[in-house]
Simulated assay, not measured.
Amino acid sequence: MKQERIKVQLYNKTYKEIDMSDFSEIPEELFSNRSDIVSVWLPDGVKKIDANAFENCFRLSEIFFPNTLRVIGNEAFRNCVNLKKPEISEKVDVSETAFVGCNL
């Protein structure tokens, strides 16, 4: 089976990949308070983004969700003030507070 990775573009224009082989959730606060993240590509297999996973990532401007995503938790993207409105499937259960503090 092909191992999937999260692809992250940082402010200094470098790219990082995070191994996704062991989980289908983005855990709570995994990327919170990271001021260097500007873009995120989540691979197929990710089903849930937990609470506050990307909280206070103020430079985050775009995120790409996989077709497998089903849940975006409370305040997952809280205060991501530069985030452009992402494309979210109708199949995704989005918390009412998922994008609180964003300028969408």
Rank of each mutant, 00 (worst) to 15 (best):
S24D: 05
K13T: 04
R34I: 04
L10A: 00
D19P: 11
G45T: 06
S24F: 05
T14C: 06
K16Y: 03
S39D: 13
E28P: 02
P27D: 06
D22Q: 13
T14H: 05
S21G: 08
L30S: 14
D36A: 03
Y11T: 11
W41Y: 11
S39I: 09
E28R: 14
R5H: 14
W41R: 09
V46N: 05
N33I: 14
E29L: 15
S35K: 15
D22F: 12
F31I: 00
I18K: 01
E28D: 09
D19I: 13
L42F: 15
F23A: 13
E28F: 10
W41G: 07
I18H: 02
L30G: 02
V40L: 10
Q3N: 12
K13G: 02
S35H: 12
T14Q: 11
V8K: 01
V8W: 00
K16M: 08
L30H: 13
V46R: 09
V46F: 10
V8H: 00
D44R: 10
Q9V: 06
D36W: 03
V46D: 05
F23P: 03
V8A: 01
E4D: 06
Q9D: 00
F31L: 00
N12R: 01
I18T: 01
D22P: 03
L42G: 09
P43C: 01
R34K: 08
I6W: 04
